[in-house]
Design a protein around this nucleic acid. Structure first.
Lengths: 214, 214
DNA sequence: CCCTGCTTGTGAACAATTTCACAAGCTCTA
DNA sequence: TAGAGCTTGTGAAATTGTTCACAAGCAGGG
């Protein structure tokens, strides 16, 4: 019954990635210290993060790698398959679909949608690009719960509204604009321009100092 | 002399985007309330964020759109041109380079690098893909301060080490792996798999509840 | 010029997250 | 069985980030 911080979930995801590595290499146990070093955090943080969900470790020994991997997969909801709709048959969507970790983690592309008549009907990975207008009908049939929004900012909100109305319950937004959704829908936004501007800020204001404008 | 939170910088970036919009539309002033609604935050947050850098508003009126736009550009270091190296001539790099906000904000692609002999020498946007081996020599010549890492996880750290040694001072990492850099180098990581897993978690554990494992 | 209505700027209160510090507990050895 | 050496799990403290609440200040009207 406890709220889990977003940052915690992101770290869990990272723990999982490295535990999988260790597991493949046959390592039996890993200490919070080892995990912390791999993931660039602190041992205390690792222990606290995991403790929200149970006691998975053995004192004096560390965490059993294989078991913890399974627990994390379950916590993150990765034992099942997630169908993913990709909205926008451009470079970003292609990058995502090509990414092999995508499928390894149980995410499969259920469909690709675009407005551009030149793209509609073209093969795209293992799918065929479908017209945006088919969204609603397809959704009723397939019931894909996650949508990746990889279209320009203009019109993004309108597409989101359609997705939400059609029953999508989670959206990963790459459009560089603010999107609003009803509270029962989960939204995450990734904004590449924003990240670059963060770097620009850091380079311009070394050490994050306030230059005292006036 | 005050530390600025990462979240604050991201919001500044968002304020700038919407202020530019308002400015193009000829709007003279904007209140913290209006900005907050556009950006999905609170008026108090807007005022606090801006107050770290000065007093840009007029009480009773709001903020002068055009002026504040200029101030934010300066704060974020966007009056100058930033040269960006793209490491990895794949889909992600292409998505970034294609993105029009990229150039609008003063980021220009200074070079694209890849190891794949099939890609080296090919035209790529307005650049020509160069071999990874040319990195060091080119950097001495061009001195590009920002690098975008769009290569697989394997070998990412090695490439980063080379970039750092060659004088790169900011890195935007899309490789799904933990990267370490010396303290004088700025690093931001974007991990698409992690974001999707965050959605999976949210869908699996509605309301972010602790299911009380045992 | 004074009053009303509105909006900023900001210290102080609050909330969330991270770090600390240490008791509890496991394994191995003798 | 007792003791040494580790490492977990977790309340409490510290730190970091957000929200509140209100005095200060500007514009416009009478």
């Amino acid at each position: 019954m406890k709220r889990i911080a977003d940052s915690t979930v992101r770290r869990l995801s990272m723990y999982l990635r490295y535990l999988e590595d260790l597991d493949t290499r046959g390592q039996q146990t890993a200490s919070s210290d080892e995990l912390a070093h791999l993931c660039g955090t602190t041992p205390a943080q690792v222990r606290k993060d995991l403790s929200f969900f149970g006691s998975f470790g053995k004192r004096g020994l560390g965490y059993p790698v294989h078991e913890l991997t399974a627990h994390l997969r379950e916590i993150l909801g990765l034992q099942r398959e997630w169908k993913v709709l990709i909205i926008g048959a451009g470079k970003i969507g292609a990058a995502l679909a090509n990414y092999r970790g995508f499928r390894q983690r149980g995410f499969t592309v259920a469909g690709v949608y675009d407005n551009d008549p030149h793209k509609v009907g073209q093969p795209w990975g293992e799918a065929i690009v479908r017209p945006m207008d088919a969204l609603e009908a397809d959704l009723n049939r397939d019931d894909a719960p996650i949508a990746v929004l990889a279209i320009p900012a203009e019109g993004a909100q309108a597409v989101v509204d359609r997705l939400v109305k059609a029953g999508v319950r989670a959206i990963l937004n790459f459009a560089p604009t603010q999107i609003t959704v009803p509270p029962h829908v989960n939204l995450k936004s990734v904004n590449m321009a924003m990240e670059l501007e963060g770097l620009s800020f850091a380079l311009t204001n070394p050490g994050y100092l306030d230059e005292g404008a006036a």
